[in-house]
Simulated scan of single mutants.
Amino acid sequence: MISLTMSSTCVSSPASGPSRCALSPWPVSDEFHLLGDYVRACRELVTPAQAGIPSVGVRRVPGLRREEVAMLAGISADYCLRLEQGRDRNPSAQVLESLARVLQLDDDAAAYLLRLGTGSPRRRRRRAPEGDRPSGRRQARRRASAPD
C-alpha cells in the first residue's frame, strides 16, 4: 500500500486571478489542482507489475499510464485527464474510491483523496445488528408468538 500526501504546487496571486494548470489553459481552483497533482503523483508510484499489467516495450512514464489507470478504474481516459487537469468539478465518491483502489492507496491516503475530491471522506454504511433492524424485530415477534 502507498501512503502519500502532497502540498500545493500551484501558485496564484490576487492580481493574476485564478491559478492555471501548466497542462491546461482552463482556470482551476487550488483544491482541484491538488486532486490532479495527487492522482498524478500516486500514478507514478505504482508500477505496471504491481497493477497486474504486463510491461511490454519501452515506457516513457515511471508508473502507470493515464489510460491504464482509467481502464482499471472503469472510467474513460478523457475523464481521468480532466480530473488531473482540474477541469472536472464533481468527481463522485465512487470514482475516487475506484482510483484509490487502482492506485493501491492505504486508508489514510484514500481518505485524503476523497477529501480532495469531495470535501469529506465518505462514511461507510454499517449494518445494524439483527435485533435492531425492523425486519429482525418482526422475526423475533413471530418466533415469540408462535406456538411450540
Rank of each mutant, 00 (worst) to 15 (best):
V58C: 03
E68D: 11
A93W: 09
D106C: 09
S76F: 02
A77N: 09
P27T: 09
L114K: 03
R87V: 06
A49I: 02
R20E: 06
S29R: 14
F32K: 14
R138G: 00
E97R: 15
R115L: 08
P48T: 05
A128K: 14
V69D: 02
C10A: 14
E44K: 13
S3P: 00
P129Q: 07
D78K: 11
S12W: 06
R65E: 14
M1N: 06
V102S: 04
S145M: 11
R137Q: 15
T9F: 02
R124E: 14
R124H: 09
S7D: 14
G74F: 03
T47L: 15
R115T: 15
E97W: 02
G74S: 09
V28W: 01
R124C: 01
S7R: 14
A110R: 15
R20K: 14
L4M: 14
A49R: 12
L81K: 14
G63D: 06
L4P: 05
L105R: 04
R82V: 00
M6C: 10
M1Y: 03
R137Y: 06
A73L: 06
S24T: 14
P54M: 01
C80M: 15
D107Y: 01
W26I: 06
R82S: 13
P129E: 11
R142D: 11
A41N: 05
P129R: 13
A15E: 15
C80A: 15
R89A: 13
R123V: 06
P129S: 13
L116A: 08
V102W: 07
G63Q: 10
T118S: 13
E84T: 09
R143V: 03
T9L: 11
R60V: 02
I2C: 00
P54Q: 11
Q85Y: 03
S76P: 04
L81C: 05
E84C: 05
V69T: 10
G86V: 04
L99G: 04
E31M: 07
G117Q: 06
R20F: 10
R65S: 11
R87N: 12
M71C: 05
R122C: 04
R127C: 01
S16I: 01
N90D: 14
R126A: 12
A146G: 08
A109C: 05
P14Y: 08
G86I: 07
V69W: 02
R141G: 00
T47W: 04
L64W: 04
R127E: 11
S29F: 00
R141S: 08
S3Q: 12
T5V: 13
L34A: 11
E68A: 03
L64S: 07
G36W: 02
A41P: 01
P14C: 00
R124I: 06
T118D: 01
R65V: 01
A41C: 06
P147A: 11
D132Y: 03
P18H: 04
D30E: 15
E130H: 09
L34Y: 00
I2R: 15
P129L: 09
Q139S: 13
Q94R: 15
D148Y: 07
L105S: 07
L99T: 08
A111K: 12
M71F: 11
S120L: 10
L45F: 00
R20T: 08
E97G: 15
C42N: 10
